[in-house]
Amino acid sequence: MMNGSSSGSYGAGPAGTAFDPIAFIRRPQTVLRLLAWIFSMAVFGSIVNEGYVNMGSERLHCVFNKNEDACNYGIIIGVLAFLASLFFLALDIYFPQISSVKDRKRAVLLEMAFSGLWAFLWFVGFCFLANQWSHTSPKELPLEQASDAARAAIAFSFFSILIWAGLTVLAVQKFLLGTDMALFTAADAPKQQYPSNDDIGQTTIEKSPSLIETVETRPPGYQIPPAF
């Protein structure tokens, strides 16, 4: 019986497997997580630090066509992606320690749903920022530095689409992998009972016809052939 424990499921080995930091860092999923973390920081950092400029007035305006919603959108999804990358990175480290197959399945479903959603939100953010930037007049930008920040936010938003789409694909592959029953330990696998020699002999005797039954079932007129 499995007793709800996982000996190898959803892309991870048996529960309690020793953590290998080198192998963990080399995983494609870990590399994408780190890139997603860096790119999200680049997006909201560029907007917060240099995305608001003074365009002929005392009030600071969003560099994207003075549209505050564009700056707010980039900051919000960037910060949430930043936090989510750290959360899922910690979950990846803890994942092999999860002994319940159901809990592993829930974690993979959460990862798959969030990654797919954020790939879509980054796509919306890229289109939104690029559209607003195209309507921004160069004359309204007193500093070239603000232009660099705007372009950086747009570029890293586009890169984030690819990163989170890749994370979604990896999560789907992990979900489709499911639980490999061949990885369960021999102790968890049901033991097959083989008959002993005594049982085989007893079964043979029970199935063998008795002498009385043999005599009684002889056909009429049957004579025993003489012995030579």
Rank of each mutant, 00 (worst) to 15 (best):
I98C: 04
L60F: 05
T179E: 13
R104S: 02
W133L: 00
R106F: 12
C71A: 06
L121Y: 13
S9A: 09
K174Q: 09
T30N: 07
N49K: 10
F128R: 00
L86I: 11
F158P: 14
E111D: 14
T136H: 02
I212R: 08
R33Q: 12
D103Q: 08
K105Q: 15
M1S: 05
W133C: 01
A84D: 14
N65L: 00
E58G: 15
F64K: 01
K174M: 04
T136Q: 13
M41A: 13
L32H: 01
F228I: 15
A70L: 03
K102T: 12
F24G: 02
V79D: 09
G11N: 02
S57T: 08
L129M: 09
D148S: 10
F156W: 04
I38H: 07
I25M: 08
S46N: 04
I75D: 08
Q132S: 12
S160Q: 04
Q145W: 14
F95P: 07
A146E: 08
F95T: 03
C71S: 09
I47D: 01
G16P: 00
A171S: 10
D188F: 08
N3K: 07
P138E: 14
S85E: 08
G74D: 07
K174S: 07
F126L: 05
A113Y: 11
D69N: 06
E50L: 11
F64A: 03
A171H: 11
L117E: 14
V101D: 01
I98A: 09
S40P: 01
A15F: 12
L83V: 08
G16D: 00
V43Y: 02
P220R: 05
D188A: 10
C127G: 13
H61Q: 14
G116W: 00
G125Y: 11
L162E: 04
I25N: 05
I38L: 10
I38D: 10
Y10I: 01
S85P: 06
F126A: 07
Q29L: 04
